[in-house]
Design a protein around this nucleic acid. Structure first.
Lengths: 194, 194
DNA sequence: CGTCTATTTGAATGTACTCAAAAGCGGTGG
DNA sequence: CCACCGCTTTTGAGTACATTCAAATAGACG
């Protein structure tokens, strides 16, 4: 499978020499998942960190009423999983499910810890990646607070057109924290004002 | 000022030898701020990463209507600032303001980058800290999605009693994404049902 | 073509907001 | 020690944004 996509991605953050790349690849497992297959299931421990080579996933949470709430979507060149479960090796709170057929590069928890020792630069890599993800997450919170549903949808559409194309609307509604019916009426409004 | 609090905090994540602690301290600036003073102002570049030795701050965002939305609070032994601005060295999107008189340990952006080189373990330290912060941020998003205002307040109160004691209610309302009037009526409801 | 899932529609409802005013509370000075 | 000031919290009436529920329509796929 396409290991080059992973190495190229990493090269955009840190420089690994050929030996280090080799070590890294001994710790990486390449794997295919089908559409609708679960990468993580709430209740199980999330054993892998998953880099997406191909495809698209949703990470979601089930509330007490059995309702699904999308935490985030992820596509090629993103990492996904339940980070909280992965770090603590305790049962996951989230589900991660494939929206399309997918290919992942997976690193086992124990191997990840070893990699940090064998290749200290990996600490830097993930520090930087997670810093960025955290900044984005903070921004999403303030947008939740300060925007109306219509504004949230408009900004999402403008910022992530690739998601709007690939992902059903009722999932986007869930990501935005609104009902699919209301998103539908927002879209109607937008269409009429143009 | 109390450098030991910083060293002790760091020691709970990584082990620094005396020489490394010394190097670290040459890069740290200890500083006092008064209640209501700004640690970060939107529009300015956030030059420091700030560790709180004493006191309590709010980080917030101003929307187009001039309304304040609390991104988060931080107290002793937490880091605060505008991470996005600090990392990119571009103008901040957030304000960070002292709710009480405060003492901080500050590290300049350039010094932080040097520290990562001089003491590679610092990469590990911040990787771990930010991973945790990111996990908490994700959890907050899903709580935003799946809880009513009353549930959000109850959970906040139970999880962060120290905040409820120190922080005015209208700021907690803003953090939860509701109006102070509505929080007041929620509290009345809770009081009546007991 | 038929079935299953996703999207749209519309009416009734509810949760949370706006606005205005009153009450509470803490500090300060006369 | 009381009176006043500024700021925070409470109250209440009217309103709006978004939800719920039920049903119709549209789309995708075998």
């Amino acid at each position: 499978m396409n290991k080059d996509a992973l190495l190229q991605y990493i090269a955009s953050y840190i420089q690994l020499d050929p030996k280090e790349e080799e070590i890294l690849l001994t710790k990486v497992r390449f794997r295919q998942y089908l559409k609708n297959q679960f990468l993580v299931q709430a209740g199980d421990v999330s054993k892998y960190s998953n880099f997406i080579l191909k495809g698209c996933v949703k990470a979601f949470h089930l509330d007490d009423n059995g309702q699904q709430h999308i935490r985030d979507f992820a596509i090629e060149n993103w990492w996904t999983g339940d980070l909280g479960s992965f770090l603590s090796q305790e049962p996951a709170q989230y589900y991660v499910q494939c929206i399309e057929n997918c290919q992942f590069a997976q690193i086992l928890y124990e191997d990840m810890e070893e990699l940090y020792v064998l290749i200290p630069k990996m600490e830097r890599l993930f520090r930087i990646i997670i810093q960025k993800a955290y900044v984005a997450s903070q921004k999403r919170i303030t947008q939740y607070q300060s925007l109306t549903a219509k504004e949230k949808y408009t900004q999402f559409k403008d910022k992530h057109p690739q998601f709007v194309e690939r992902i059903p609307q009722y999932l986007i509604a869930s990501y935005l924290g609104i009902t699919p019916e209301f998103l539908s009426s927002i879209r109607k409004q937008i269409a009429n004002n143009e």
